Simulated scan of single mutants.
Amino acid sequence: MNNEAENNGDLQQTRVISLFSLLGMSMTFMMGFISLFNSNLVLTITLFFASMIYCFAYICLKKYRTLKFSSYITIYSLYLLVFYLVFTGGVEQTGPLWIFIVAPVSVYIQGLTSGLINLAFFLSIVAIIIFLPTDIIQHVTYSMEFKLRLILSFLTTSFLSALYEYLRMISFKSALELGNKHQ
């Protein structure tokens, strides 16, 4: 039964990574296309490149069944894209808004412990980017209020995502035990 549960978990994770890869590919392609018409060449190239990476992750997952590899490509390309959007501001300084998809995707794809560890590193890098003085390296500037609210709201989203993942894990284990008991 444990092997069956593991296969069921892998199947579910494969579906989520497939869905996220397709969604990421579609969204970044569409936004890259819009950026092309707004004459933002660097953002356009970045978004089209991210779209190709998500497509690559999807193909690796579907064709070669590389769950772990595809999950790494998916999550770390998301991190890099969000770092870029926070650093440059994206369009009209709305880039940091994409930070909020990172927490739920991280804890689901990487699991609770690894996801939280990676989120700590992720938030550390975001904090370095937004608090880095512009005289060291030129980047978009945000108000102190925005910076603090971004970090606090990200921490809240991370906490809620971790809580949801923890409760999901407990529920899954409970269902397995119940299934084993009745079998």
Rank of each mutant, 00 (worst) to 15 (best):
Y79L: 08
I59T: 10
G95H: 09
L155P: 01
D135R: 11
F20A: 11
N118D: 14
V140P: 00
L19H: 02
S39E: 13
C55F: 13
A162C: 05
S106M: 07
Y164S: 09
N118S: 13
T113V: 11
L97S: 12
Y58R: 07
S26Y: 12
S77V: 05
G90E: 01
L152A: 14
N3P: 00
S35Q: 15
A120F: 14
G9E: 15
F37Q: 12
F69G: 04
F37M: 11
L19I: 14
E4D: 13
I129W: 09
T88S: 15
P133E: 05
I34G: 02
A103I: 02
A120N: 10
T94D: 00
T88K: 06
G90M: 04
L81F: 10
P133C: 08
F48C: 07
M25D: 02
Y166R: 12
N3K: 14
F146T: 11
Q12K: 13
W98I: 07
F83T: 00
M25Y: 02
D10K: 15
A162S: 15
Y164W: 12
I59K: 12
V126L: 07
L19D: 00
F56D: 03
I136K: 08
A162G: 14
I137T: 09
I53S: 05
I136A: 11
F69N: 06
I34M: 13
N180E: 15
Q138L: 08
I34A: 07
I73K: 08
L22M: 10
L150G: 02
C60E: 10
Q183L: 14
P133Q: 05
F100W: 13
F49S: 15
L152M: 10
E165I: 03
F69D: 06
F146I: 09
N7E: 08
L160A: 10
G115S: 08
S51R: 03
T94R: 14
L19N: 08
R149E: 11
L67H: 08
S174C: 01
E165V: 03
T28S: 15
I17Y: 06
Q12P: 00
A50F: 09
N8Q: 14
Y142P: 00
Q183V: 12
I73H: 04
Y84F: 15
G111Y: 02
S143L: 07
S161V: 06
L150Y: 04
F56E: 04
A162H: 08
I128K: 05
V126K: 02
E6A: 12
G32K: 05
I170P: 00
F37L: 13
Q138E: 10
I17G: 04
S77Y: 01
G90A: 07
V102R: 05
S21H: 03
L47Y: 06
L81M: 13
M30Q: 10
L152V: 06
Q138W: 03
H182Q: 14
Y79N: 14
V105G: 02
S161I: 01
L167A: 11
L176V: 09
F100M: 06
Y166T: 08
S114D: 09
Q138K: 11
L116G: 04
K63V: 15
F83I: 01
L43M: 09
F69K: 12
F154N: 08
T28F: 12
L150P: 00
F100I: 07
S158W: 06
